[in-house]
C-alpha cells in the first residue's frame, strides 16, 4: 500500500473529468465535486496516513450519495482491462 498526499484540487479535477465522460450536466458535476471534495477532506484530515485504496474507498462512498454512475466510473476506471 502506498501512502499519498491528498490534494483537494486534484480530486475536484478528477471528479469533473469523470463526470464529463458520462455526460453529467456541468453545473451538477461542479456541485458534486465541491461537496465530495469537502467531505473527503474532512475525513482525510482525521487520519494520520492514507493509502490510495483508502482514498478511493472514501471518495467512492461520498460520490454514491449523489450519483451512482459517477461513483462507479471513479471506482472502476483502472479496472476496465
Amino acid at each position: 500500500m502506498k501512502e499519498l498526499d491528498f490534494s483537494k484540487e486534484n480530486l475536484k479535477a478528477e471528479i469533473l473529468k469523470d463526470a464529463k465522460s458520462i455526460n453529467l450536466a456541468p453545473g451538477f458535476a461542479a456541485t458534486i465535486s465541491d461537496k465530495v471534495s469537502d467531505a473527503v477532506e474532512q475525513k482525510v484530515n482525521k487520519l494520520s496516513t492514507i493509502t490510495k485504496n483508502d482514498l478511493e474507498r472514501i471518495v467512492t462512498s461520498e460520490l454514491k450519495k449523489y450519483s451512482a454512475d459517477l461513483a462507479y466510473i471513479y471506482h472502476n476506471r483502472d479496472k476496465i482491462i
Binding site: K17, D18, K20, S21, I22, N23, I73, R77, I80, I81
Partner: peptide, 14 residues
C-alpha cells in the same frame, strides 16, 4: 472492447 471504453472515457472528458 476494453481499450475502446478506455479511449471513450479519456476522450469524452477532454
Amino acid at each position: 472492447l476494453g481499450s475502446l471504453l478506455l479511449l471513450y472515457h479519456a476522450s469524452l472528458n477532454k
